[in-house]
Amino acid sequence: MLARVAENMYWMARYLERAEDLARLIDVTTHLHLDLPRGSTPSWGTLLTLVGAEESYREKHGTAEDEGRVLRFLLGDKDHPQSLRAAIAAARSNARGFREVFPREAWEDINGLYHFSQEQLKSGLSKRGRHTYLRGIITRVQTVVGRLEGAMNRDEAYYFIELGRQLERADMTTRLIDSSSARLVPQEGSGGARFDDLQWMSVLKSLTGYQMYRLEMQRAIRSESVLAFLFQSSRFPRSVAGALLALRRSLEALDPDASLPRRLPQVLRQVSQLEPEGLAGEKLHALIDELQQGFADIHGQLERRYFRPSRSADPETAS
């Protein structure tokens, strides 16, 4: 298929996944803050760090990180690509470029998602309407994903969508794990340990992984087992390994004879070999940084291989 169309599909899927995960992250953080002990101030700025939007936020709003401002920025800002609104708009504009090869209903669903995200934004910014708004976004993204799953031939188009979705998912899951190292819950005062558990639980819930964790690990919430589950479980589809394995399967289906992008097996090995015991704080954060660099490298390799064929007139002679 056309390289441009493949790239559009890949990015549409990335933005859709990003929108869904952002909605999950914001929803769960909001709930967590409601459980905080009286007297401690929730840090909304951490959310900005997690999605890598700290700098663009500072440029716009300085250092004031109150709930209203941060949420307006993450939900409704048009100008930076990490906002929910911008992600959905970008998914839609990518989808426009290949309407002729895309199930018609899926295009209508994406349009519906886009209009919902714009029209209901005001209610999403209110404390009472937020949860309903975010659930609405998540459900609508899931509808698109389900529609594609059920309607598309397993051909190139489908696999490029899968590549985008799984790579974005691996990346967003590491950001959610990072939230524990970033300390959404301030540690001052008593009860720090208890709130550690609370925080892990909220990370699991944001990935709809709480039940799955219980089923798979059969144990109480403990930092190292949650980390093992979220990084390494090959059964949980939102774990880092789960997403990367799905990515690998799509690549193998897409191009059975080609070698995998060099960085993919490396990153997978790093994930399966990591030692969750004692992994916390700075050490965890550094590991996650490294993984995210790995994802970026994988993206670069996909881009070079599939999306950017040489434009020179005679590539054979142009070297």
Partner: peptide, 30 residues
């Protein structure tokens, strides 16, 4: 888009095509 779909053809934009020094036209695919 409709006609491309009905004929089973690729719908291309200018940036999807290149002309080589033999005056042959190619589309850039995956």
């Amino acid at each position: 888009a409709y006609l491309a779909q009905q004929m089973g053809c690729e719908l291309v934009e200018g940036r999807d095509l290149v002309v080589n020094s033999q005056d042959e036209v190619f589309m850039l695919t995956t």
